[in-house]
Every structure is written in structure tokens, then in C-alpha cells.
């Protein structure tokens, strides 16, 4: 703070502090507090708001655990509350999105950081960025068209003789969530690619050569040298992609099948279709909490510290 004052003077420092405070307080803390308060109140007609029935309770949160339905987990049929089911599917397929995005990003990042000549990197990065110039909604619709029954993907696969007849990708060929996973990977892959690329760029090429010189085959070099060095980038990329995927509403709505349900859609239904902001707010906070638990759990599992991600 003293440093800041010395370097930029009173006016600029004041502006920095005020803008940051405004951003934190008005745009993050207060709206969330208001929503948090709402989540503990019952959904009442306007006339009864503030009346004797308007008391704080955890009823809205309890709804998450109500109305159990059958769910098969590893072949076992068990009763799981419907909304918890949606949550579990959302988390599972968000993890799938993260893993798929990583599988594509790692080789591309390595190619950009260590293989291609540094002169052509800006061009390649531009090429990667161009799809982002189109809005997220249009990109989701583009995939809607690609995956549709008479769309180009089916035409190409049938034309090449890989498939015998066209399939309904959006209704799910492998799972009910195929199209959603494809759309989410496409939308968020750069959030995985660039942190990994950054981490890999800082790896001294001599380390790779040293490993090869000591007899390591390419996969061993990656496993022991490149991958451990890139871990902070992989971690922050994964957290971003996971959170963005789990929080996406547009892609699951556009590309979802009749049998898919994303938890953001559940919240949207509560808030906009039922106009029940209280329940929607409760779901939102529960969702935030549970996703945070998942992220920290996975970080624990892979021995990643928060400071690695913030870098």
C-alpha cells in the first residue's frame, strides 16, 4: 500500500482502491449476500412477503434431497434424489469435458511450446483464437447444425463408409450427453490450452534433451519431465474448464437431448420458469459449494496446491 502510494501518488492510488472496492463489494459481495439471504426465505405470494409466514428456514436446501428416483451406479440400482442425480451427472460430464479438453490440449500445447519454430507461434495462436471471435451462442448452434441428422458430420461419416446410416448425435450415441460434451470441449478448450502452453514454454528445452540423452524414450520424457513441469498449468486449466463447463447454461440448453439435464438448467427452471428465486438461490449456493468441494478434492488427489494455480 505504501509502495503503491509512493509509485502512483494519491489520486491514482485512490482510484485503484475505490475501483477494486466497488468491484468486490457492489458486483460480488452484495449481490451474493442478497441471494444468500433470499435462499433461506420461503417462496410466497407478494402479499404475504414480510408477513407471519416469511421466516428463515433451510427448507429450500432440503428440496435438493427430496423426491428420490432410481439411478444406476456401476450397475447397481439405487434411489438418489432427482436433483442430486442431475448434479452428479453434471459433475461427471464436466470432468469428462475437462479430461477430453486436456487430451487435446496437451499435444497442441507441446507442439506450440517446444516443436514449432517460435516465429510461427503468433500465427498459430491467432488461428486458435479466431473461433472465439464468434459468440458462444453461435458456436453452440454451429455444433447443433454439424451434429444434426442431415448434418455434415453424418454426411461425411456415411459418405466415407465409416458408418452405415446417419445417427441422432444429439440424442446421444454413447451417452445422453455426447453433444453437450462436444460443445463444451469446443467452447472451453483454450482455457485449458493456454495455461498448459504457458507452463511448457518455461521448460528449458535442454531438460527434454537431457532426458533423451540419458536414454529416455519419448513417453518417459513426457511422463517424468514435461508433464510434472506443466502440472501448475494443467491444474489451473482443469479448474477453469471444469467450473466453466459445470456453470454453462447455453450449451446444455442448445445441444442437450431430451434425456440430458444439466444442473444449471435445474436452477434456471426454478428461477425463471417457476419464478421461485428462493429455491433457485438455494440450489445455486449448494451448487457452488459442492463444485468447490469437488475441485478441492481433486486438487488434493493430484497434490496440487492453490498457489500452483494462482501462478
Amino acid at each position: 500500500m505504501g509502495d503503491l502510494l509512493k509509485r502512483y501518488g494519491g489520486t491514482l492510488t485512490g482510484a485503484f482502491v475505490l475501483l477494486t472496492a466497488f468491484w468486490l463489494l457492489m458486483l460480488i459481495i452484495l449481490p451474493n449476500l442478497a441471494l444468500f439471504e433470499t435462499s433461506f426465505r420461503p417462496y410466497l405470494p407478494v402479499a404475504e412477503m414480510g408477513g407471519p409466514r416469511d421466516v428463515y428456514s433451510a427448507d429450500n436446501y432440503v428440496k435438493f434431497f427430496e423426491s428420490p428416483g432410481p439411478m444406476s451406479v456401476f450397475g447397481f440400482e439405487i434411489a438418489v434424489p432427482l436433483r442430486a442425480q442431475t448434479f452428479l451427472y453434471t459433475v461427471f460430464y464436466s470432468v469428462v469435458v475437462t479430461v477430453v479438453a486436456f487430451a487435446f490440449s496437451y499435444p497442441i500445447a507441446f507442439y506450440l511450446a517446444k516443436v514449432v519454430s517460435p516465429k510461427s507461434v503468433p500465427t498459430l495462436i491467432l488461428l486458435l483464437f479466431i473461433p472465439l471471435w464468434v459468440s458462444e451462442a453461435l458456436r453452440a448452434f454451429a455444433w447443433y447444425i454439424i451434429l444434426t441428422l442431415n448434418g455434415p458430420l453424418n454426411a461425411a461419416l456415411v459418405g466415407l463408409g465409416i458408418m452405415e446410416k446417419a445417427v441422432r448425435w444429439q440424442q446421444g450415441v454413447f451417452t445422453n450427453y455426447d453433444a453437450i460434451v462436444i460443445g463444451l470441449v469446443y467452447n472451453y478448450i483454450l482455457f485449458m490450452l493456454f495455461p498448459i502452453y504457458n507452463a511448457m514454454s518455461s521448460l528449458d528445452t535442454n531438460q527434454i534433451e537431457a532426458a533423451q540423452d540419458l536414454g529416455a524414450p519419448w513417453w518417459k520424457t513426457h511422463l517424468r519431465i514435461v508433464l510434472p513441469h506443466s502440472k501448475p498449468g494443467i491444474a489451473s486449466g482443469s479448474v477453469m474448464v471444469f467450473m466453466l463447463a459445470a456453470g454453462s447454461l447455453l450449451v446444455p440448453t442448445t445441444l442437450g437431448s431430451t434425456r440430458s439435464n444439466w444442473f444449471t438448467q435445474t436452477i434456471q427452471q426454478a428461477m425463471l420458469e417457476s419464478q421461485d428465486w428462493n429455491t433457485g438461490a438455494a440450489y445455486s449456493f449448494l451448487y457452488l459449494l459442492l463444485c468447490t468441494v469437488v475441485v478441492f478434492g481433486v486438487m488434493r488427489l493430484f497434490k496440487v496446491r492453490l498457489s500452483d494455480i494462482a501462478r
Binding site: D204, N206, Q207, E209, A210, Q212, D213, L214
Partner: peptide, 19 residues
């Protein structure tokens, strides 16, 4: 390839594995 030769290279910056 480098990993098939009976040579060992000591790099100018040593290239020890920091992790």
C-alpha cells in the same frame, strides 16, 4: 537417436531436473 547412442552430454546449463 540420442537415446540410442552410447554418449552422455553435459549441458552448458547442466539441465538438472529441478523437480
Amino acid at each position: 537417436r540420442p537415446n540410442q547412442r552410447p554418449t552422455a552430454l553435459i549441458f552448458q546449463n547442466l539441465a538438472l531436473f529441478p523437480l
